[in-house]
Write a protein that binds this DNA or RNA. Structure first.
Lengths: 219, 219
DNA sequence: GACTAATTGAAACAACCATTTAAAATATGG
DNA sequence: CCATATTTTAAATGGTTGTTTCAATTAGTC
């Protein structure tokens, strides 16, 4: 006997609803009860279709990141030959958009954020992979901006500075921090944010470069 | 009849044990059971001495921040007349130390971090005050570095960039992120971190300053 | 249209949590 | 040493969680 079509419907429905709920509340705070209710399914639906809350979460994670990479690719569609400053902007744009732009395909950033605050054991590998993908790309870009003489450690630190600026912004779930106002970020504010992080980071990277090349030259 | 001395002992003991547990696990994940067990007290002790988990948390918060401001003051002991670059370094030093140096008096940073990830309602005011204190100081410093012509919004954004760099570093509870190695940060690594964030931030701030003053000049 | 497997539904289950209760134990002041 | 307020203890309470159970229902296939 074949799979019933209404089954896959509920399956998908749960998946998408869970993605929203997990993005908003994180794995631990989200309850299967509220997910099922929002998906108009029975309490037992999650366990029947996915085998448990954690396995549902794993599937959500995979789906969310596939969406994110499609909607906001880290290279922003730029060729690898584009100027490094532009590629840096593209990464920042990608990171911030994933966190702040709340479309139907942009929950990955918030889910990742929730994970950083409270990692879920049993997702470590998937999480590491997802992070590594962005990091790799960012590392290449920053390395190029820093020049050939700069140590790997400095590259890692600069990558950290850029990433950390972007991540922490999303901490209120896309809401502005009290110091910047109230409510969610508008499109214009997001653009301004990208502009600022880009400029600030370029300045920081150049400062690190100057320092290290000066040291090298002195040796 | 006077207060019994063994009472205040247990009270203090619970307070300090709770501070550690809350710093490590956050308010929600920490259970009164484990706090009481670690303090060698009965399950009911928290409710008897503090009236509930949340009120214990409030007292912990107050104590932790008093300790932090004493051990790692935001001005680092520098006079307000010191050069702004040095004062910036002092703030960064203070923020990172509160999060990364795990002494008996440095749980405030981790507690604050846990709060940002999952705020506890009923602490809003205390939290806001604690944050505002650091922010105020940092804003003054950054403002001076940016010069008089730069907009308030740019000041806020730069403050955000500096703070975010520092905060996110502590997200693993003082453990290094996988990209930088394993285990907790050593003293030397913390110093290196401070050095980097300081240099990077100065570069970022200068870049913003250049941009804005150029715009002003063009007008 | 009937048989069968896939899906749904309501209720129950077991584990965990913070909190309460009331009796027992203890230190302090007289 | 006694009386009393303070503190400790163990057990119970009420609520929430994820998961399981099993009967009822449904959709696909012959």
């Amino acid at each position: 006997m074949a799979i019933r079509s209404d089954g896959v419907l509920k399956h998908d429905r749960l998946l998408h609803v869970a993605m929203e709920v997990f993005a908003k509340k994180g794995f631990h705070d989200a309850t299967v009860a509220e997910i099922c209710e929002a998906a108009e399914a029975n309490i037992a639906a999650v366990n029947y279709h996915f085998g448990g809350k954690e396995q549902l979460y794993a599937e959500v994670w995979a789906l969310a990141f596939a969406d994110a990479h499609r909607t906001y690719p880290v290279d922003g569609g730029l060729p690898a030959t584009a100027p490094a400053t532009q590629r840096l902007r593209a990464v920042i744009h990608s990171l911030l958009s994933r966190i702040l732009r709340h479309g139907p395909h942009s929950h990955a950033g918030l889910i990742l954020l929730q994970e950083m605050a409270r990692p879920v054991e049993g997702i470590r590998q998937v999480r590491r992979q997802a992070i590594a993908l962005v990091r790799k790309h960012l590392e290449l870009t920053v390395r190029e901006l820093l020049g050939p003489k700069v140590s790997d450690q400095s590259v890692r630190l600069c990558v950290m500075s850029v990433v950390n600026q972007c991540l922490t912004i999303g901490f209120r779930g896309g809401q502005k921090p009290p110091s910047l106002g109230e409510g969610p970020f508008t499109e214009q504010e997001i653009d301004e944010l990208i502009e600022h992080v880009h400029r600030f980071s370029l300045g920081g990277i150049r400062a690190v470069r100057r320092q290290e090349t000066a040291l090298c030259g002195a040796t």
